[in-house]
């Protein structure tokens, strides 16, 4: 069970930068500032964070749509970035991606059959009869009638379209699926359907999920482990249960308190002055210190390393003054 499938080691991604023709430096955004994390085979790793924290950049790097500026990523013992550069198809057969906006990720001028067959033809090189049965199998897996195959994306609702997106990701029989906000564009009733299908598929096909979302309650309900990203760095990572019940990083605390929940009035609210740091000009020390109620001078001076909790060596937090068990 605890076999490492994916290992990300100090991945960084800088957008922009470089120099102009005359040598003056161009502004650069540090989208990922050294993220190290491992994904075990068969688990669901949830990644939470607010917009601009680098979670989508990470996802795009993993499927080979983007390349890290530095850092190493190994997948099942192979160098993922080298694989992506050398043979994108090889990588796409192992890692697939489900997009946030289900309709935007389906070409409006292609039938569902053409969309689902594309990976079968180009990744697996299947012949026609094999494709026919595989496509029907896929539709069955995501609970859609095979009659839909000849239709166009605009004829489907968001939930149905997202299931087609999932079927496409499944088509190449990958081991790992990166789900980038797969349910945030959907209504709650449809969201529940899609989450149930995802859970079902994971059991049936022995999949590993990387589930990215900004919705804490969704992440909590699907994840085995959770990583909290803040400003391109890991703030906290650990088993879902312990991260959600006993968060150590003050940012995780803040997230949990801010999340609206039925039947609960929101508690402590931050001041309006608290903002994300400027990505063009990241502050020294801990990126969260401006918003942190527990900050000290130490936080201004040095960036806290990701350290295990004294009581649970699988629960890490990058904080100089982490919350204890009870706080």
């Amino acid at each position: 069970m605890s076999e490492t499938l994916l290992k990300i080691d100090a991945a960084e991604r800088i957008f922009g930068g470089g120099k102009t023709l005359f040598g003056s430096p161009l502004p650069a955004v540090h989208a990922l500032r050294g993220v190290s994390i491992e994904v075990q085979r068969g688990e669901t790793l949830g990644i939470v964070g607010e917009s601009g924290c680098g979670k989508s950049t990470l996802a795009r790097i993993l499927v080979g749509l983007d390349q890290p500026t530095c850092g190493a990523i190994t997948y099942d013992g192979e160098d993922l970035c080298a694989l992506a550069r050398a043979d994108g198809r090889q990588l796409a057969r192992k890692i697939q991606y489900v997009f946030q906006d289900p309709l935007a990720s389906l070409n409006p001028r292609k039938t569902i059959r053409a969309i689902l067959e594309a990976p079968l033809v180009h990744l697996l090189g299947m012949d026609k009869p094999a494709r026919q049965s595989r496509v029907e199998e896929l539709m069955q897996a995501v609970n859609l009638a095979p009659e839909f195959l000849e239709r166009y994306p605009h004829e489907f609702s968001g939930g149905q379209a997202q299931r087609i997106g999932i079927a496409r990701a499944l088509a190449a029989d990958p081991e790992l699926i990166v789900l980038d906000e797969p349910v945030s564009a959907l209504d709650v009733s449809v969201q529940a359907q899609v989450l149930n299908i995802l859970d079902d598929l994971k059991q049936r096909f022995n999949l590993t999920y990387l589930f990215i979302s900004h919705d804490l309650s969704v992440v909590e309900s699907v994840s085995d482990r959770v990583a909290v990203l803040y400003f391109g760095k890991l703030a906290e990572v650990g088993p879902a249960r312990s991260v959600f019940s006993a968060p150590r990083h003050p940012y995780t605390h803040l997230l949990l308190q801010s999340a609206p929940a039925p039947g609960r009035k929101p508690t402590a609210v931050e001041n309006a002055e608290t903002e994300l740091p400027d990505p063009y000009n990241p502050p020294p020390g801990c990126a969260f210190h401006a918003r942190c109620p527990r900050r000290s001078n130490l936080c201004l001076q040095s960036e806290p390393p990701l350290e295990p909790s004294p009581i649970d060596d699988r629960h890490f937090a990058a904080c100089h003054h982490p919350h204890g068990r009870t706080s």
Binding site: L65, A92, Y97, Q100, A171, A172
Partner: peptide
């Protein structure tokens, strides 16, 4: 996104 998706379809 559908162009990205096509790329991931090989």
């Amino acid at each position: 996104e559908f162009v990205d998706a096509a790329r991931l379809s090989g």
